[in-house]
Computed example of a mutant assay.
Amino acid sequence: MKILAVDDDRVFLEILDHALRTSGYGDNELLSSPLPALLMLESSYAHFDCILLDIEMPGMTGIELCARIRALQAYQNTPIIMLTTLSDRTNIYQAFDAGASDYITKPINALELQARLGTVRRLVDEQKRIKQLEYQVKVRSGSTYLDYTFDTPIMIPDFDRGIEFHALQNYLLTLGVKGLFSVSAFAINIENATTIYRMVDNIAFRSMLADVASVLGECIKTEKVLISYAGNGAFVGVITGRTEWQNHALEMEMNDKMEDFRAIYTSDRLPLPRIRVSPMVSNSLFSPKRPSLILDRAIAAAGAKNAIPRIAVA
């Protein structure tokens, strides 16, 4: 796995490189300035499987660099881990909003680093497998198969407001007990997703999810939201702070906009996706035992029959 690390502290970079090599990751590029890193990534002569970014850097913060990396086609799904000090924790929301997948607190703990990168390696391997399958779809005539199951929390193509589901889980883990009470969650359930999944191949099902995601992106007005596809035909979102939330109005608006797709679905002899929006769900006293419980409760409130799948987060 090829790793790029960017931090303006050269001493820390040496410590990080040693920790990476000790953990079995020896193919590392270390840069002490954001701009050369961005230029390297834009040049496309060297592709990286994972990127580590310090949050506080002169000239361009790690959060700004993360957002610019996510704008690059080749790095839209690449795991990006933020390197933070305790004082940087207030910036974690902005980092996830910019596209970060996870974070590691300085000073580096070798076991934590190894666990985080182990999760990243599994994710990278899965992404490579899916890309290979997508390539096969393009080159083999009549081949229209992409391997994932109904409950898989896949990334949705061209959904600019979406983040990886495991990144959303990681964000909830960063909040701590006190921070969990400052967020609320909602779910967007495709009520007939199971029916559509059984009628089409996985490529077409993902295209249906992309249609719903495009409508969701148009209708969600608040900016303080992190949204993921959680599998089982359901999107989940987390909002920080208080916000006006009218789930029935949003549900009506989304279903109205889905009507623009009716002709396409009719021609393909498929039912038009039916959207149900949950009320806003807040944390209870029991939620801190498992931060992602708030996502389950939002899914249930949207009428989904299946709970979201459990994903191990290091």
Score class of each variant (00 low, 15 high):
Thr61Asn: 09
Asn192Gln: 07
Ile299Ser: 08
Leu133Trp: 11
Met60Pro: 01
Leu180Gly: 13
Lys138Gln: 14
Asn255Phe: 04
Leu175Ala: 05
Asp296Pro: 02
Ser143Lys: 12
Lys221His: 08
Met155Asp: 13
His47Thr: 12
Leu168Cys: 02
Ala67Arg: 15
Ala307His: 09
Val139Asn: 06
Ser278Ile: 07
Tyr148Pro: 01
Gly59Tyr: 09
Ala37Trp: 05
Lys178Thr: 15
Asp17His: 13
Thr22Ile: 04
Leu52Asn: 03
Val281Cys: 12
Pro58Gly: 10
Tyr145Cys: 07
Thr222Pro: 07
Val313Glu: 01
Thr149Glu: 09
Leu13Cys: 06
Glu259Cys: 06
Ile92Trp: 03
Thr61Ser: 15
Tyr75Gln: 08
Ile154His: 04
Ile299Asp: 04
Ala46Gly: 05
Ala5His: 13
Asn28Val: 15
Asp17Glu: 13
Leu113His: 00
Phe235Ile: 00
Arg116Tyr: 04
Ala300Leu: 06
Ile163Ser: 03
Arg262Tyr: 09
Ser292Met: 11
Thr105Pro: 00
Asp102Ile: 05
Tyr148Val: 00
Leu83Tyr: 10
Glu112Gln: 15
Ile108Gln: 00
Leu39Pro: 02
Arg242Thr: 11
Leu216Gln: 06
Leu285Cys: 05
Asp9Gly: 08
Pro79Glu: 05
Ile3Leu: 13
Gly241Asp: 05
Asp54Val: 09
Glu251Tyr: 00
Leu72Lys: 10
Pro309Ile: 10
Tyr171Glu: 04
Leu111Glu: 12
Leu216Cys: 12
Lys2Tyr: 07
Gly241Arg: 08
Ser101Pro: 01
Ile264Gly: 08
Val177Tyr: 10
Gly26Cys: 08
Asp97Leu: 12
Asn189Tyr: 05
